[in-house]
Design a protein around this nucleic acid. Sequence first.
DNA 1: GACTTATTTGCGCATATATGCAAATATAGA
DNA 2: TCTATATTTGCATATATGCGCAAATAAGTC
Lengths: 95, 95
Amino acid sequence: MNSTDLNELADLLKALGEFNRLSLVYELCQCAKPQNAMCLCECCSVDASVVSRHLKVLTQEGVVKMEKKGRERIYSLNRTDVAERLRALADRIEG
Amino acid sequence: MNSTDLNELADLLKALGEFNRLSLVYELCQCAKPQNAMCLCECCSVDASVVSRHLKVLTQEGVVKMEKKGRERIYSLNRTDVAERLRALADRIEG
DNA sequence: GACTTATTTGCGCATATATGCAAATATAGA
DNA sequence: TCTATATTTGCATATATGCGCAAATAAGTC
């Protein structure tokens, strides 16, 4: 694995490795339907602006995808994609 | 999943989500035998003290285990343990 | 004991990151 | 157009983190 790939993987893990962001991911795990940011706000007790920024990080790292719907932004997990990347690391570590 | 478990998982991901620490993990992946810290130093171009601290973090998070051997510290991956934790997250995300 | 090697720890520093608040932007609806 | 709601952005701030260097500690060897 080259340095760039390693860096991207580290960025993914870093994105997931923050309590409130991981809380958002778990919240989205339990949602059958995509959720808007205000709804997601409720799972972590921080300002809406903070949630907005966390969701931006998760989007940039490909953890979630976002769709505009009127004045709302609807978020959902990139389930298989993230799961695959984590399993690839697990496989590598298990050797 | 309760708040404590979520916190522990976040800490694991945070430990893995730093470039030099992830480099150390990948280096250990490729080693059939456990390695001492000085040997691991070579894979990331930072001071020995920095590697020492990174290995301490990885040890605390259960990613690696350490054995004293004379004046050396021998490190090896907790392969199955880490792999299991990552797969559990992957499973949860995939839903 | 003196010396060498391996590792850790204290310290200072620079940068990154998480946060809240207020203001700005966007859009739906009256 | 005016208003309400959803979200983002600018700013300030506090804290965390990664780093190097030098000194301290630990343990093997002469």
